[in-house]
Each structure stands twice: as structure tokens, then as C-alpha cells.
């Protein structure tokens, strides 16, 4: 039996009818057509499907859509305002934090919570903080730099783009 749920997606309230077995990531991609949230491993390992559920970073391939009833969802489409890159997105752009880009939306959603909890993380804290997100272009060094850039910018500290590392 289908369930009717109410969810706030990127600030807009939506009433949707879903099958109980519908995964949250499928609701986001196929019902809401927000395809910035990716499906990588589909086994809660890779983090490509990471979104914010009531502000907490979660893997949307391992949550049922019905579990989001009454909750607020933020996806990669919901983090910039008026077409301006937010500081995390800007950090990725300035530091070559993405290569193929497949992991990037999940990385950015995870980092959004990481910097909210810890506005000035050390490199080790960043690496531990993104340990649930896999990048197969082996771009972790530049992703860490992107987070340091975003952290500095969000705290009002002068930022300098670094020379990207190519490995």
C-alpha cells in the first residue's frame, strides 16, 4: 500500500505518494528529478548519494523514502543561492577538488555537515570526516585543500587558492 508523505526538499514542501520500499535516493532522483544526488555503490559504502536529512549527512540509498516523512531534505541543488557558488563549491573549483565529478555532490553534502560541526578542522579531521565518501579519481589531496579553503572563507580568513596537485 502506497504512503503519502510530506517532505521539505531544498526549502519547498512537497506531498508525494511513494511505495514503502522506495529508497530515498530513488525518490530524489526519479520522482523529484533532482539528479545531482548520485547512486554509486548502492550499498552505503561510497557516499555518492549523501544528502542532508534534518541537517545530518546520510546515505540516501540506505533510507526509505517513507522515513523522510515530516523531515527536511537538502540536496546538492539546494545549497547555492541565486546561482552563486557557496564557499564549499568554490573551494572545489579553486583547488581542483573534482576530476570526473561523480563523487562531488556527496562529498559537498558531507562536508556541509562537517564544517557546521567543526568550522576549523585539521587535515586529519577532514580526512576522517570524509572517510565515508570514495573518490576514484584519487583526488583526496585536492578535496582536503578544498575543505580548508571553504573553512577559511566561511570563517572570514583570507583564502589563497593553492596549486592543484596532479597525481
Amino acid at each position: 500500500m502506497n504512503k503519502v508523505i510530506t517532505v521539505t526538499v531544498n526549502g519547498v514542501q512537497q506531498v508525494l505518494e511513494v511505495e514503502p520500499r522506495t529508497l530515498l535516493v530513488h525518490m530524489i532522483r526519479e520522482i523529484l528529478n533532482l539528479t545531482g544526488t548520485h547512486i554509486g555503490c548502492d550499498t552505503s559504502s561510497c557516499g555518492a548519494c549523501t544528502i542532508l536529512l534534518d541537517g545530518k549527512s546520510v546515505k540516501s540509498c540506505t533510507i526509505l523514502a517513507v522515513q523522510a516523512n515530516g523531515k527536511s531534505i537538502t540536496t546538492i541543488e539546494g545549497i547555492s543561492t541565486e546561482g552563486e557558488l557557496n564557499p564549499i563549491q568554490e573551494g572545489f573549483k579553486e583547488n581542483h577538488g573534482l576530476h570526473c565529478g561523480f563523487c562531488t555532490p556527496g562529498m559537498i553534502m558531507r562536508i556541509t555537515e562537517l564544517l557546521k560541526d567543526n568550522p576549523d578542522p585539521t587535515e586529519e579531521e577532514i580526512r576522517w570526516g570524509i572517510s565515508g565518501n570514495l573518490c576514484r579519481c584519487t583526488g583526496y589531496n585536492n578535496i582536503v585543500k578544498a575543505v580548508l579553503y571553504a573553512s577559511a572563507k566561511m570563517r572570514g580568513v583570507p583564502t589563497a587558492s593553492t596549486e592543484p596537485e596532479f597525481v
Binding site: 552505503s44 557516499g47 549523501t50 545530518k56 549527512s57 546520510v58 546515505k59 540506505t62 533510507i63 558531507r110 555537515e113 562537517l114 576522517w128 570526516g129 572517510s131 565515508g132 565518501n133
Partner: peptide, 12 residues
Amino acid sequence: TKLIADPQVRNR
């Protein structure tokens, strides 16, 4: 807890 899965999984 640090060794259980990863941050997103630990949120759930």
C-alpha cells in the same frame, strides 16, 4: 564508534 562504519552511517 570511530571504527564503526563511517560518519554518515553513524548518523543513522
